[in-house]
C-alpha cells in the first residue's frame, strides 16, 4: 500500500462529498491508502487569495503542507485548484530560499516550519503512474465496465499549466486522461478546444458570472457537437462550473444541455461497482440517469 495524506480542499467535501468517498474507496482497490490530513484548511483558493496578496497565499498553503510534513507523508488531492496552491507553493518554496525564509517567519508565529520534505501529487497522476498504480491496474480493478457510452475529458487548467512549472509535458493535446477513461470500458471522445478553461477560475465566477458562464457555454457547444454522453474531469470546481453552471446557463442564456458531469473518481467508482447512492450522484445539479442507463 502506498500511503498519502489526503488533502480535501473545500468543494469536494462540502459540495460533492461523493468525490471524497469515491477517492477513498477507489484508490484503496488499486493499492493507495488515503490518510486524513487533520486540521487542513482551504488550499487557499488561488484565484481569490493569489489576487489579494500572493504572500498570504504562500503562507496559508505552506501551513497545509507542514501538516503533511509532520505526518511524514506526501500529499495527494483530487482538485486542480488545490493542486495549484499546494503543489505550486510547495514547489516554489523548495526552490526559492528567500521566499521560504519569509514564509517561515510567518509560520514561526504558530510554531510551524516549512521544511520542503514532502511532495504533492494529484490522485489522477498517481493512477496513471505505473510505479504507483498505472492504467493496467485501473483496468484490472473494473468490475462493471462502462460500455456503450461516449465520455469526453476536461483536463482543466491548473493541473498541467503552466507547463514549465509542471512535469506533464504537452498541454495542447494531452491524452493520458483518455487512457484512464478508456480503461473503464467507455469510449473517450475528442472535441474542439479541449484544453479551454471551464470559465470559473481566477475569481471570474464570483466577479462576473455571465462572462464566466459564457466561457462554459462555449465548451458545452463543443461537447454537444460530438455527442458526448458525459463529461469527466479531475477538479470539483470545474465540476461545479459545468454541473451547477448548466442550470445557470439555462437561466441566463435559455439553452439546456443536460450533460452529466462526473469526477473521474466517481466514474471509476461506478466502474468498480459502487452504486450511484454510494457516490451521492443525486447531489449533482444535472441528472446522471441518462448516462447511468447507458452504462449500468
Amino acid at each position: 500500500m502506498h500511503e498519502y495524506a489526503f488533502f480535501l480542499g473545500c468543494i469536494a467535501p462540502n459540495r460533492y462529498p461523493g468525490c471524497e468517498a469515491a477517492a477513498i474507496k477507489t484508490s484503496e482497490k488499486v493499492g493507495i491508502k488515503l490518510l486524513p490530513l487533520k486540521g487542513a484548511s482551504c488550499c487557499p483558493a488561488p484565484g481569490a487569495f493569489g489576487s489579494i496578496d500572493l504572500n498570504v497565499w504562500y503562507a496559508m498553503a505552506a501551513r497545509n503542507v507542514c501538516l503533511a510534513e509532520e505526518m511524514k507523508k506526501d500529499i495527494t488531492l483530487i482538485c486542480n485548484g488545490c493542486y495549484k496552491s499546494i503543489y505550486e507553493v510547495n514547489h516554489i518554496l523548495k526552490h526559492n530560499d528567500d521566499l521560504k525564509d519569509r514564509v517561515n517567519e510567518v509560520l514561526a508565529e504558530i510554531d510551524m516550519e516549512f521544511k520542503g520534505s514532502q511532495d504533492v501529487w494529484h490522485l489522477a497522476e498517481l493512477y496513471y503512474d505505473p510505479k504507483i498504480c498505472g492504467v493496467q491496474k485501473i483496468r484490472d480493478s473494473v468490475t462493471t465496465p462502462l460500455t456503450g457510452a461516449k465520455v469526453a475529458v476536461h483536463y482543466g487548467c491548473h493541473l498541467m499549466k503552466p507547463q514549465k512549472e509542471r512535469h506533464f509535458g504537452d498541454t495542447e493535446n494531452p491524452m493520458w486522461l483518455e487512457e484512464l477513461v478508456d480503461a473503464l470500458g467507455c469510449e473517450s471522445v475528442q472535441y474542439r478546444n479541449k484544453m479551454q478553461c471551464c470559465g470559473a477560475g481566477g475569481g471570474v465566477r464570483g466577479y462576473d458570472i455571465t462572462h464566466s458562464l459564457d466561457i462554459t457555454n462555449e465548451k458545452m457547444i463543443n461537447l454537444q457537437e460530438v455527442g458526448a454522453d458525459a463529461l469527466t474531469e479531475v477538479c470539483p470546481f470545474c465540476q461545479l462550473q459545468f454541473d451547477r453552471g448548466q442550470i445557470e446557463i439555462q437561466e441566463t442564456f435559455g439553452v439546456s444541455y443536460g450533460l452529466p458531469i462526473l469526477h473521474y473518481n466517481e466514474l471509476l467508482g461506478l466502474a468498480q461497482g459502487m452504486s450511484p447512492q454510494d457516490l451521492a450522484l443525486d447531489l449533482h445539479g444535472i441528472d446522471c440517469t441518462p448516462f447511468l442507463k447507458k452504462v449500468l
Binding site: 480535501l8 473545500c10 462540502n14 486524513p36 487533520k38 482551504c42 487557499p44 447512492q277 451521492a280
Partner: peptide, 30 residues
Amino acid sequence: IYSTGHGVPNNDVNRAARVKLGLTADPPTT
C-alpha cells in the same frame, strides 16, 4: 476562511449526505 478555515464551508444538506455515504458529518479539516 478567517472564521471557518474554508472558503466554501459545509452546510446541513451536505452533512446529511456525508453521513449517508459513511463519511463523518464534517470533514477532518478545520
